[in-house]
Amino acid sequence: MRYEAPETIEKACQLLAAEAGHARVLAGGTDLLVQIKTDVLDPSVVIDIKKIAATRTITSDAAGFKIGAAVTGAELKEHDALKAAWPGLVEAANLIGSTQVQGRATLGGNLCNGSPAADSVPALIAAGAKAQIVGPEGRRELAVEDVMIGVRKLALTKGEIIVSFTVPARPKHGGDAYLRFIPRTEMDIAVVGCGVALELDASGTCTAARLSLGAVAERPLLVAEAGRALVGTKVDAAAIEAAAAAASAACRPIDDKRGTKVFRIQVAGVLARRTIQLALDRANGKTGATH
């Protein structure tokens, strides 16, 4: 196995595209190194993207934030402006593993590992995040919900790398949240995860809402029906109930040791209700803590 650490994204794409064997991007390595050690993967070269400045920085302007794909969860947590604007996203990234894992784990790695249970992905989808992708053919952008197409399957083609994610500026009366269900309090994989972002007008009527679920299908889902159930309402109990029912209806989960299909479908509804409430409280200027 060779190791390359190029300083430009173009060079990194070139190395990836030109490799005859199996080339793999290395970000925080918290998935990749485990997979190499357990013989799930055996790459001929790993391409460390952390020397590429654009993957390691967070910038912001009036339109919103651009977050480098290789920024770690611990770094997101230390970015006060991002935390104030998108607390749900930052909390989701910081549910990943332990303090030690958060010191290395990145948003790009969480998405590109291709697990349906990846915690930060529903939060990114709810926030309306876009992935900026660079490859041998140039640059393009994909909505995060379009990046993962199945278990360990991505819409990226050979040589393509996610450089960064953009999320919009926080709307005036906007709020987001991410909650997951795990059988214990820390260090576990989501049985269901739910991200919500919503926006109110001055009268408290919902003008936009996005709800995303993790671990209930072969990839994280954007549940458009749930968003529609909230828009135009005051996000009252009936609207939240309708959105939760839409969330449960969108699930097509598997049975596994973490939970049965029936359980996951029910938990998706419960979590949807709680996550919408937390996002609503935040949109109304109340600060809700998750633990």
Partner: peptide
Amino acid sequence: TGDCGACSVTVDGRLVCSCLMLGVE
């Protein structure tokens, strides 16, 4: 595999698992 923390070290002040980082890094 990153689960137990027995290998904890700091890298530029940041706590990480040394089993999940390459020596070359």
